[in-house]
Amino acid sequence: MIVIKGIGWITLTEYGSIIKKLQGNYTDLKSLHSHLQHESVLKYAIKNFGRFDAASKMTCCSIALALNDAGITYSEHMKHDAGILGTNNDGCLESNLAYFKDYVSCGRTIARGNLFIYTLPSTPMAEAAIYFGFQGPLLYVKFQVNQIASMLRFAGKMILCGETSKMIAVEANEEKAVCFVLGNKDNTSTVKSLSLEDVVDTIEKISDFDKILMMLNRLLRELV
């Protein structure tokens, strides 16, 4: 059975996790990085964090929260058999605009490589894979309906198909992010987890981000 072992989330001013019920406030993404490092949610500084686009920053921080929620550790030199699946509404539209406007403002003669690398929808997942050492499948998928539920179902299918043993599924944009750690149920573990099926059923038709977090918290309470 596939279960969800950890969930991390970020809004414009707050961050938290569902199972361990961590919660905090932040002012900007630089301070979010500092808070998470101070609380040992981020085990070490994210290299070049200041250069990342906003979606990559949100992606990496929400994954750190979800891994911490699942009790999964990582280190600079450790690689994991974990895949990463990302989704959002707009792909990398904001980064595309930032890169091309900069190029045009330079007289269409020279582009900035540091902006260009963020013009792929999969780049935030790639930044996360490098930092956390995820060596499994990496892809961005845009779903037309029930985005988060569809993402979870897709990630679960990848585990069932034997593509990897663990999937990190993250929806992130410049303003909000939610990340789930999926894996096979470990019957010997005493750590709390939520059934993938229950989570998908609960949030299937909900698009409001705050309501999804509320429903996930309710689901956990029912489990306890």
Binding site: G91, L120, S122, L139, V141, K142, F154, K157, M158, C161
Partner: peptide, 20 residues
């Protein structure tokens, strides 16, 4: 449908997912 994007491996990964 869905959109799959994974840099220069986008469509081979899409074919793999389709087969899956």
């Amino acid at each position: 449908g869905i959109v799959v994007s994974a840099a220069c491996a986008s469509s081979s990964i899409a074919v793999a997912q389709a087969a899956g």
